[in-house]
Design a protein around this nucleic acid. Structure first.
Lengths: 255, 255
DNA sequence: ATTTGTGAACGATTTCACAGCT
DNA sequence: AGCTGTGAAATCGTTCACAAAT
């Protein structure tokens, strides 16, 4: 039988492309079946890149809503966000909802559905560690105040600095991070301290039970604990990435 | 023959997993051959996620070098950066270089090779548009001054502000963006203006021939032109992403 | 003895194509 | 008439396993 199959394949190689496809379908099916039998059905979930795109889409819908638009089609989203319309529809389909029909998506409805599925409905408390130029710039960020996030605390190790900062947000010395984070039930943190302090600050935050960190310090932060997500935003890294993409785009990397 | 094959597959379903694999190999091989014949050999290139990881690695190697380390193995990199050692080696293999042997990679050599392949060797001129709190924070970023990037210009629409800023970097009013960018041969830009000004600033920059933009304004910037890369760093978007990942991680999104 | 380098297997994501609504 | 929603195909990226190198 093995030899027959080999002969069959040789035949395919020459002429029977369609039948070959049929054959592949059959085989793939059986492989899947076997795989499904040998391990538990993996729970379906949204791919991470899709989640990223949905976040971008959510921010974009927010903007559209402010401008007073009520409907948008996947083709329009493609033009604005550079995400293929197929891709947009697929991503939205992961949410298991239906805004269907011609005329495109109802923005208000779609936005609230994304918020519900991705967990943007419950307001969360966030904090900023490091109140230098960058930290205070974020403290003053107009849109955070209007958002679903509540900026609950700021921290800095320099106590003199704390006294001179003018903001509505309560500020604390860094050694109080753990107690304040626990008491105020803060779930997300933004790190804006110098590189050498970043990891120790992150350790404190994670120790206090924080769930996610946006790190602006130019080091890669490690988390020993699973279930804690870290987003490193190193500006030099971003510049490097752009440089590399430009190079790769203009001339092939393999000489 | 079709029916024979079907029967064969049924047999597989029950017991012949190994032979099935063999069969798949044969078929895949033929499919590849056919595909290769029907279209031109696609040029191999580095996957985008691999480029991102290599940028992170580059920054990390930079740090290691400062600390005086000379050698590092893929296993050590795995611990520090949370990138699987397999993955590290694969990414490095895309560069077509050889630092091989036991004892790990020579940091200096590896770093210079990454720089060469990814295009970090030629210093590039960069500029910042928007000299509010965030813009000035970036102007003062210690590491940019030491890096392969030359911070050549800052821009702000508020002329009074330009006079009060204390920095070594030359600053200009925003209406001079196009001429200054051209004259100084600036290739990358950082946008730190309010949301409503971001797109028009980006249009000016792209019009002046800029190749890449890191955008800190909380809107998604569009580029009509291909060959221009944009990196949107929206802090609310990052927070959204963390929230969504937490939700997806803790409880399945499909109820 | 240890660690790299890499083809191939595997798994994940994107794209396609068209049925199904409105 | 036009747009969404979605299985299935195609593509892309990661992991594996082991040969090669020192």
């Amino acid at each position: 039988m093995y030899i027959n199959l080999l002969g069959y394949v040789c035949l395919f190689k020459r002429k029977c492309k369609n039948l070959l496809h049929k054959c592949r379908i059959l085989l793939n099916y059986s492989v899947k079946k076997i795989t499904a039998l040998s391990k538990n059905m993996t729970k379906s979930k949204i791919p991470k890149p899709a989640i990223e795109r949905l976040c971008t889409l959510y921010r974009f819908l927010d903007m559209c809503e402010e401008e007073g638009t009520t409907c948008i089609s996947s083709a329009q989203i493609e033009k604005q966000l550079h995400i293929g319309s197929h891709n947009v529809r697929k991503d939205i389909s992961y949410l298991n909802l239906s805004c269907s029909g011609s005329g495109g998506y109802n923005i208000k409805k779609l936005k609230s559905q994304i918020a519900a599925q991705l967990g943007f409905t419950q307001p969360q408390n966030i904090c900023i560690v490091g109140l230098g130029r960058l930290g205070t710039a974020i403290l003053a960020h107009e849109r955070i105040a209007e958002s679903e996030y509540n900026l609950a605390a700021g921290f800095d190790s320099n106590i003199n600095k704390l006294e001179t900062i003018r903001t509505r947000v309560p500020v604390f010395p860094s050694y109080e991070i753990e107690s304040v984070v626990r008491q105020m039930n803060i779930t997300l943190a933004i790190i804006a301290v110098p590189a050498d302090a970043a990891q120790s600050v992150a350790d404190k935050l994670i120790g206090a039970g924080i769930r996610g960190i946006v790190n602006f310090a130019p080091v890669v932060i490690k988390t020993g604990k699973s279930g804690v997500f870290i987003n490193n935003v190193d500006i030099l890294g971003k510049l490097n990435l752009l440089t590399a993409l430009l190079k790769a785009n203009s001339s092939e990397i393999y000489q």
